[in-house]
Design a protein around this nucleic acid. Sequence first.
DNA 1: CTACATGCAAATGCTTTGCAACCTA
DNA 2: TAGGTTGCAAAGCATTTGCATGTAG
Lengths: 135, 135
Amino acid sequence: MLKEKNLRMTTQRKVILEELRKLDTHPSADEIYEVVRHRLPRISLGTVYRNLDVLSELGEIQKLELSGSLKRFDWDTNKHYHVRCIRCNRVEDTPVAPLNQLEDELYDTTVFEIVGHNLEFIGLCPKCSKKDPGK
Amino acid sequence: MLKEKNLRMTTQRKVILEELRKLDTHPSADEIYEVVRHRLPRISLGTVYRNLDVLSELGEIQKLELSGSLKRFDWDTNKHYHVRCIRCNRVEDTPVAPLNQLEDELYDTTVFEIVGHNLEFIGLCPKCSKKDPGK
DNA sequence: CTACATGCAAATGCTTTGCAACCTA
DNA sequence: TAGGTTGCAAAGCATTTGCATGTAG
């Protein structure tokens, strides 16, 4: 898969992929940088960004387009949806099944050629919900 | 509505609201700034950002959390979904009905207290679709 | 008059990029 | 050894903020 695009498996690329695959937290580039730094102290944040881009274009990982300011990454490339806590920004997977028929429905009623959709739930995680019972 | 929060209806606030209500393009803060500048040449971009925040907190307009780098604004405060063109970033409303039952479904299967959801379709608008028939 | 609001500019936060040195295939 | 890749630093872009001045109620 790397060969076809004239790409190389560098140490940095390998470690970023390995570390992301250990995380279920849907980390941002910066969070991945912090973890990878333990193994590669001289790696730069720019390299992390570049590799996350390459890996998501290869389909090895998924770049998440969630609301909020920063992009997050997911080792799970299967289509699935997420919940984000409004208070602490924790992101978790949901057990909601992919809504493929939604796109078909829209297909007949819009002039757009639909190629996909993003669905994200917003809520309060148990911890934050406990802290503020009034909400 | 303004009085309750000790807010004032300034010229800037009024013009921003009026101009946004003329637009169906779901403009970004910068695009609103450009339009409003025709009527108020000395307005600053910071003022536009501040007022869009105030107005969306008041519920007079809606701040859209779509994918892509910049936030967009919608005068239509009713719950509805959007399609974004991957190529030109044009955003339009969809006729897809609000999926309220989705949140109920998730309610039973997650530890999160769900308060809402965002759904966005991705596609090609007619213009961009024509330009690239191979895609 | 007195807060809230504005204009201006600087600062922030995330992400991208230019470039010389480096290293994988 | 060729060209993809890295580290570093600077630049980019959207948005936010501090502050003195302006103005709505």
